[in-house]
Each structure stands twice: as structure tokens, then as C-alpha cells.
Design a protein around this nucleic acid. Structure first.
Lengths: 347, 347
DNA sequence: CTGAAAGCGCTTACAG
DNA sequence: CTGAAAGCGCTTACAG
């Protein structure tokens, strides 16, 4: 089976009618449509996307840009795989396909995106790993490519994004720890310029201020967002002169490395040091003592991202009229044993 | 900037010459080429892929099909992220872009691939998670789409694949354990129909036979290939009447769950039970006692897959004349402490 | 070395 | 309800 021409010849009918029948246009005789669909099915005909795209000016493909950096490789987690299912659940309704665009580690993300966009491989983009200043946002805005970002950015003046509620997490973690008598509360922060680090730290500082606890820069531990980073964080924490009684983590896998390093030193989470993790990850679920952390549905996040994106695409706008342009995605606290003690209660 | 027509108008030159200049054709005046390239750069012109594809009959895009099943989500590891870098290193030489095609979990992988192939979004495919009988291989062969499979299959009569050396791993693991006095050696196997399970078990049986050890079906523990599967495997293993003295794992993350369950019962790997893991994963690297396992370069595997694929594409065949059609990818043993004891040596 | 023209496979006004 | 034709943006023989 080659193209629509062969299919039309076989049916002894014009290619226009075949096209209309296949695309569900109303002005086609029922019997004709039946024959066309049957023949297409039998011969395995599917319209060549390049032909369609060229004619229609759209590809029916949505791109999700990811980065395959060495760090990402070492530190793969299920975040995007989980989100993808949610995205696809929305896109499937409109016969849109999702593809992932992995930016090579030796290529500038901005240049990569520029190339992909200019080639018109996709109609719209989802970008992630948003930086505090992210030129990709300007690029997409200027090129008028619909997009949505996972993560806020200073660059995103008017553009759509969904971000996890880092403020809420930091805030509730600090409040919870203070209520249990903690005053020296350490926090981890990413070593990169990724925007969420700023948001997280700001909220932590404000929460401390509310309780008249002075901000101590030595309690901000900058490490890579990875299991190894968690190990490193515990290591630095143990070296501090006046050791904190609690630590708040910013990335889901940190807890695993942190636990390991603590255990090596005989420091037991939930007894000697309170630990509050970030998102619950499948791999962290077996930690002993169980980790107090925050929970969310990756699938729901993906679905929300999908709807928000479609609400920003002219062709689908009217189907999603009430979508917000920006969402702070809430996380729910799951209490565990890792912070289940009161400071000073051991008298 | 719209299309090549606008660029040509701007330069007061024909679109044919612009195209030839941009595509590096030899018969273009140096000065003309310089002007064209400068203007394209300045205006951010990149050829519309649909136009090119339609004309040339190729997309310059290679697809990597992955599955975003619930199991994959819970169990994300770095395998594909690592392989991607290697693939891209080869594809970049030919200006080929790699995209990932995530098959929705509620769609049949065969139907999904059929659709993607028929739409002609990609020139060639890399498929993975190969099943013992895998209709995708017939589909791609019949459609004459160049492809390479990660993993052997009974369906792959003549088609290219690279597979990890499961025989070698099972064989060397058994030999190593027998040399240390083990006679009751358990082995894990996947609960699915994935082909590697058959290969792994066959090799295990043959190795036992060589040493006149009867095959005991109760020592084959079928679990999901995941951290949780490892936990489950340890659980079942501890329930066996005559407990084995050693266990061989088939999947990299199993070791983590297995260790956890063993520890819970006070069974120490490397003292009470010998454990040999599969591939070393970043997350397993901190296990205590350290895990004896096998090592390989994901990057190199990706590069080999890329070369093998190109060797099967008419347009690139001559550049890669000596590529093998099938490769059993070797893994190197990394001895650890988890099997460092001699059975019966404790007299 | 350059230009004019054909045509890749579709979809969609436009006639009838 | 159907057909004939235009044209989406490119690349590439073919003339000159």
C-alpha cells in the first residue's frame, strides 16, 4: 500500500472522496464511507503525515522536551514516565500523538529547541527543567508555538505553566518541625540554577521568620538533586558544628542516599534527626523508618498539563475554555516515622 | 520568517539556489552560498520538515519506541536514558534526530507501531522490550522499515538485534557459585513473556547440568522485574523448605528489594546467602555489603545500536559496511562482597 | 553556476 | 454526494 492514490484507484473513486471519507467529513455517502474505511483497514492504509502536515500546516504531534544529561541518566526517576500517561489520556481524545524529544547532552537546549521548532515537527511543546531565566520561553513565545512549561520561570511573564507547590511543601515542613520543637532546621537546595530552588528557599526563609528564627546560611546545603546528592547532604550535615535537629529535602530520591549516610554514622532518622522528604517515589517507599513526605498524582499532573496546553492551541481552545493559565500543583503530606519525635521531650 | 520563498525573495535569488546552498550541494557559487547561509542564520530559517520529507521520501528522524506501562513507571531506570546518548552520538554525524515514541499503556504496542510507521513520522525504528513472539518484527520487516531490536526474539529470523549476554551472565554466575561450593542455587525469572527470561533460564540449566546438579523447578522464582519483585523474590526464597545458599538475579533493581527483605529477616547477603546481581545500576551502587554484579556501558551499547541501524538503512549502508547483524553484548563481572564466602568453609 | 518547473501525498474550497 | 484542481514547502532533474 502506497498512498491515497492507490487506494482511490482500487475503489475506483476520486482521492478527494477517499480523503473526506477517512477524515469523517459529513458530506460522504454512508455506503461509500463504509467501503473506503474497509479498504483502508484491509490494506493498512494510513495517511502519510508529511502530506497532511504540509497541506494543513499542522502535524498533530505534541513534543515533550527532555534532557538526557549525565545527571539525568544517573538519576532517572519515574517523573516523566508518570506524567506521560496523563498527557496521553488527554491527547488521545483529539488524536494527537505525544513524542519525546531528548536534547543531546552536548547540544545547547535552546539551540536544540530552536531547530525542532523551525523544522515544524510538532505543533506544540511541553518543556521542563525550567531555569530561572529560560530563553526557551522567549523563543517559543516569539515563534508563536503553543507551549506549557513544567516549572515557573522569571522569563514566563504571561505564558502557561504548572509547578509543584514548593512553597507549600517548604512551609508545611517548617511549620510541622517547629511545632515539634525544632529550631535548627536544615534544608537542601539544588546546586543548579533551576528555578524551584529559589522558590523553595524563599518559602523556607519566610516560614522561619514568622517564628522569629534567624536564617542561618550554613543550614542551606547545596547538592545535586539525586540519590548521591542526598548522601552528600547527610555527610555535610554531620560535619556541621552545631548539628541541626531536622532536615527538609527538595528532591524525592535524596532521602535514599541521606538515610544511607546517616545509618553509616549511627544516626537514626526519626530518632536523632527529623527528616521530611519531598515527593514520595516508588523506590523510597521501603525506607525504614518510613519517610514523612508529600504525595501527588503524576497522572493527574500530566492530564492537567495536557488540558492547559490544548487551551492554548487555537484549534482546541474552545474545548477547554476554563483552563487556568498557571497552576501551583498541591501536594499532600503523608506522615511517616522519620520526623515522629519531639525535640527536648527526652528529659 | 516563513518559508524558503521568503528567504529567496529577500536575497533576490531563486528558491532552487537557496535550497542547494543550504544543503551543501557543490554547484553553488561560494559568494552566493555565503549570502544564503548568512541570511538563513539571521532570519532563523530552517527548512520545514514536512516539505522536505514529502519531496525526499524520508524524514531524517529515527524513532525509539518505549512503553509507558504502569510497571515501567514504578520501575523507571536509567537504561534508555543511557542508551540514548550513545545513539545520538552516531546519529548526530548524519544529522539524524532521535525521537522517543512512548506507546500509551492502553494501546496495543503492535497497533501503535503500525500507526506510527504508516504515518511515516520516522525513517527507521529501534524497538525494545522484545517478546518471545513479537509481531512488531514481522510488521517492520514487511513494511520494509529499517529497524533494530534491543533483545532477541524467535520472530527475528534475519533481522538485526543486539541483546545482552544473558547466557554469559547466567553461566558465569553459576560457575562462580559452584566453585565456591554452592549446590542449591536459586534464580529469578521474569513473570512476563519477555524473551530474555527463556535465554537466562536455559543457560542456568545447562550450567547446572555440566556439574551434574539436578534442576529443581522450585528454585526458579518468577517475579516482576522491579525492586518490588526483588523483595518478593527474597520473601519466597525464605519460605523454601530447603533454603538455597545462593541466588542469581535477572534484573538490576531486584537487588535493592531483595537486600531489604533479607535484612528484615536477619539474613545477611554475603554471609548467609550468596547474591549475584545483574547489571550494576547507579542506585544499587551503595548496597551494603557491596553487590557482585555485571557491568556494561550503556553509551557503547547505544552507539552500537545506532551503527547497526544505519548499516541497515540504504542511505547509510556504505558508511557502515562491517557492522554485524546480531550482537550478544558482553558484560563484565564486578566482584563484590555479596557472594564472597565458601559454602561449608565454616567448620 | 542559476532559474523555471515538476512533483512528493495529502486536504479542501469550488463546481456540478 | 462526488470529482477535478490547487497548493502546502520543499528538492532536484533539466535547460541554459
Amino acid at each position: 500500500m502506497k498512498g491515497i492514490r492507490q487506494l482511490a484507484e482500487q475503489l475506483d473513486i476520486s482521492i478527494g472522496t477517499v480523503s473526506r471519507a477517512l477524515n469523517g467529513k459529513p458530506d460522504v455517502n454512508d455506503e461509500t464511507r463504509r467501503r473506503v474505511l474497509a479498504a483502508a483497514e484491509e490494506l493498512g492504509y494510513v495517511a502519510n503525515q508529511s502530506g497532511r502536515s504540509l497541506r494543513q500546516g499542522e502535524t498533530k504531534v505534541i513534543g515533550l522536551m527532555i534532557e538526557s544529561s549525565a545527571e539525568a541518566v544517573e538519576n532517572a526517576d519515574n517523573f516523566f514516565l508518570g506524567v506521560i500517561s496523563g498527557l496521553q489520556s488527554v491527547f488521545a481524545r483529539h488524536k494527537l500523538d505525544l513524542i519525546m524529544l531528548p536534547c543531546p547532552s552536548d547540544e545547547d537546549p535552546h539551540e536544540y529547541l530552536k531547530r525542532m521548532v523551525a523544522r515544524r515537527i510538532v505543533d506544540a511543546m511541553i518543556i521542563s527543567n525550567t531555569q530561572r531565566i529560560d530563553r526557551r520561553i522567549d523563543l517559543l513565545s516569539r515563534a508563536k508555538i503553543p507551549f506549557v512549561a513544567v516549572g515557573r520561570s522569571v522569563s514566563a511573564s504571561n505564558s502557561p505553566w504548572i509547578d509543584l507547590d514548593f512553597e507549600g511543601v517548604a512551609d508545611r515542613a517548617v511549620e510541622r518541625l517547629i511545632a515539634r520543637g525544632h529550631r535548627r532546621i536544615a534544608i537542601t537546595a539544588p546546586s543548579s540554577e533551576v528555578n524551584l530552588g529559589y522558590v523553595f528557599l524563599d518559602s523556607y526563609r519566610r516560614a522561619l521568620e514568622r517564628h522569629d528564627i534567624a536564617f542561618d546560611p550554613s543550614l542551606v546545603i547545596r547538592v545535586r538533586s539525586s540519590e548521591q546528592g542526598g548522601y552528600q547532604a547527610a555527610h555535610e550535615l554531620l560535619l556541621l558544628e552545631e548539628r541541626p535537629t531536622a532536615v527538609i529535602l527538595i528532591y524525592e530520591l535524596m532521602a535514599i542516599g541521606l538515610y544511607r549516610r546517616l545509618m553509616e554514622s549511627g544516626v537514626i532518622p526519626g530518632r536523632d534527626l527529623a527528616v521530611i522528604g519531598f515527593r514520595d517515589a516508588p523506590r523510597a517507599q521501603f525506607l525504614q523508618p518510613s519517610l514523612s513526605c508529600f504525595r501527588m498524582s503524576l497522572y493527574d499532573l500530566g492530564a492537567a498539563l495536557g488540558r492547559m496546553l490544548l487551551a492554548n492551541m487555537p484549534a482546541y481552545r474552545e474545548v477547554y475554555p476554563d483552563e487556568a493559565c498557571n497552576i501551583i500543583w498541591p501536594l499532600e503530606l503523608t506522615p511517616g516515622e522519620s520526623d515522629a519525635f519531639q525535640v527536648g521531650a527526652m528529659v
